[in-house]
């Protein structure tokens, strides 16, 4: 902080200086911790992304080679597409469907029962949820049951079917992740002041129109939290995939985070992995900035 540059001054201006500085002290603990762990690591990865490094031998500086390689790598293209599928899938299930469920739940009497059931999978970790769903969806789970029931063509390990497995995993992760958003939406819906809604109903607004025109705008602050949180996490989708398919078969279900991890830690190409991480982070940063920009208008 710019405190050190102060000129020799009278006591009064010293006091004013202190007054100016104190607000920044509130930032100190958070900033220090984030800088030590996050910014330092980001910076470390940034440097590694310009090198060839196997984690054992010396790093070799190779300039933009990793970034160039990225755009020539067919796996990278497929991972990017899969990542986008994950992003859209997340917007659909854990955000949109969660909103629908939340609206529905606010209309019934047994709110807490439904809340608890839908939240249940959220108490599991993504890894545990992944393991459970894998046993259910693989050879001796549901497919086996369907096979016994006579649907022979369905009796195969669904998670090993290229491209289909990504969709299955998106749904699985929706099953697991819907709870948090649902709770937030319900809180938001219950908190909405009655007056504007009653006024709208008086004016004849009904059903879907009532929601799109009146309720949803009032839900905006919560919506922003849910949306950003889901977006950031969906861009980084990793755990579910790592557990359920490991990115396979033949790398067809990899997302960018999985490709990054595989290149960095399985193939020991830490430079290339870091380059993918940088690209992923910058993308998320830009999206976040666009979504958050408005909330800072007039704050300065």
């Amino acid at each position: 902080m710019e405190i050190v540059k102060s000129k020799p001054s009278s006591k009064l201006s010293m006091k004013r200086k202190i007054e100016k500085i104190t607000p920044y002290l509130y930032l100190v603990p958070a900033v220090i911790l984030v800088v030590i762990f996050c910014i330092y690591s980001d910076f470390f990865s940034l440097i590694v992304s310009f090198t060839e490094w196997d984690g054992l031998n010396e790093m070799q500086f190779i300039g933009f080679q990793n970034y160039i390689q990225m755009f020539q790598d067919p796996n990278f293209l497929l991972s990017s597409i899969n990542t986008l599928i994950w992003v859209f899938g997340t917007l659909l299930i854990p955000v949109f469907i969660a909103l629908l469920f939340a609206i529905a739940i606010t209309h019934v009497k047994t709110q807490s029962f439904f809340k608890i059931v839908f939240y249940l999978p959220n108490a599991l970790s993504q890894t545990i949820a992944g393991i459970i769903l894998t046993t259910i969806l693989s050879t001796y789970g549901l497919p086996h049951l369907l096979g016994v029931m006579g649907f022979e063509s369905l009796a195969k390990d669904w998670l090993t079917v290229p491209y289909i497995n990504t969709l299955i995993m998106v749904v699985s992760s929706g099953w697991q992740g819907i709870g948090l958003n649902l709770i937030l939406f319900i809180v938001g819906l219950n908190q909405i002041p009655k007056e504007p809604i009653e006024a709208a109903i008086m004016e004849g607004a009904k059903g879907i129109r009532l929601y799109t025109k009146v309720v949803l705008p009032l839900l905006k602050p919560i919506m922003l939290i849910v949306l950003l949180m889901s977006l950031v996490n969906s861009f980084k989708s990793f755990d579910t995939i790592w557990v359920m398919t490991n990115g396979g078969p033949f790398r067809t279900s990899e997302t960018l985070a999985v490709t990054m991890y595989k290149e960095a830690f399985v193939n020991n190409q830490l430079g290339y992995g870091s380059a993918i991480a940088m690209l992923l982070s910058v993308t998320v940063l830009i999206i976040s900035w666009f979504l958050l920009r408005d909330t800072f208008k007039g704050e300065e």
Partner: peptide
């Protein structure tokens, strides 16, 4: 066979 998870291979 269809490729299956390692535990399932043992089971098969």
């Amino acid at each position: 066979g269809e490729p299956v998870k390692s535990e399932n291979q043992t089971r098969q």
